[in-house]
């Protein structure tokens, strides 16, 4: 009985046969019911000093998020139903890898990340000093800092990552990052479904990728509600902790 997925080397093959002009920087913007925010995110990203291609992943929104993003000038990858944040980002990564993008960055569609950070995110990738760059809220402690409970959780993950993988990051759950082509290929092949950021860091660290942080400012959500409720906090902590320990003992992909 063969239940396993087709080998992911298909990704490499697709990449080689892709006829389109390669894209240098692809900014992936996952968005689920963010009609009030996504247009502004796209416009701010377009105003950023680096030439980038913007791909909004509309994760089965029912409020016209995709149309709003397209109107603001982004390409829109429409998922047929709600697949979750991890699968959305992975869809963007896969799309980018297939098109031969040199750098894939992620900015969330809820408007919490300031797209002005993009040049800072891309610089270490361009000069080859890092493979994966995280926009961290806690390097300079500027801007919106989220609740103290969340900050404690984030510190806990940072400690776990330091102890299990030997990497020092201040903001391991940040959804604002950029990856070079090699790192993007690794993440495109396997990206955990619902709380993927910490898991991704473990896998990148284990595969020997250089991870760097640059300071960024977080903003409070301009409109709408976060996808993580207060009661989910403890569950999230436990789940990510276990996922982190499991990721540490998993065979390398």
């Amino acid at each position: 009985m063969n239940r396993s997925d087709p080998p992911d080397s298909g990704l490499e093959a697709l990449r080689k046969t892709s006829a389109q002009t390669p894209i240098d920087v692809l900014v992936v913007v996952p968005a689920y019911n963010e009609v009030g925010n996504v247009g502004r995110v796209v416009e701010e990203t377009r105003r950023c000093s680096e030439p980038v291609t913007i791909l909004v992943i509309d994760d089965g929104s029912v409020d016209g998020t995709g149309a709003a993003a397209a109107k603001a000038g982004a390409s829109v990858l429409q998922l047929p139903f709600n697949c979750g944040i991890g699968a959305s980002v992975q869809a963007g990564l896969r799309c980018g890898v297939e098109r031969g993008c040199h750098i894939i960055a992620r900015i969330d569609g809820d408007g919490q990340h300031d797209p002005a950070v993009l040049p800072k995110l891309l610089a270490p990738l361009r000069d080859g000093s890092a493979d994966f760059v995280i926009g961290s809220r806690y390097l300079t402690n500027e801007g919106f800092q989220s609740t103290s409970a969340r900050r404690m959780g984030i510190r806990w993950f940072a400690t776990l990552l330091r102890l299990t993988c030997g990497i020092r990051v201040s903001d391991p759950t940040s959804g604002c990052w950029a990856a070079n082509e090699r790192a993007a290929v690794l993440l495109a092949e396997e990206y955990s479904s619902d709380y993927p950021e910490v898991d991704a860091l473990v896998r990148l660290a284990r595969s020997g990728f250089e991870i760097r942080e640059v300071p960024t400012r977080m903003r409070e959500r301009p409109s709408g509600n976060s996808s993580i409720g207060r009661l989910d906090g403890l569950y999230y902590m436990a789940k990510v902790t276990i996922a982190l320990l499991v990721a540490r003992i998993r065979p390398k992909v």
């Binding site: 016209g64 829109v76 990858l77 998922l79 869809a91």
Partner: peptide, 29 residues
């Protein structure tokens, strides 16, 4: 679901949610 989204984008972006404003995914501007 991911493959479907990627293929729809490649095939004809105008027929996906973008409608008349759709931007095909091409190189950087």
């Amino acid at each position: 679901a991911q493959e479907l989204g990627i293929l729809r984008l490649r095939l004809d972006p105008a027929e996906t949610s973008g409608g008349e404003y759709a931007t095909p995914l091409t190189s950087d501007q």
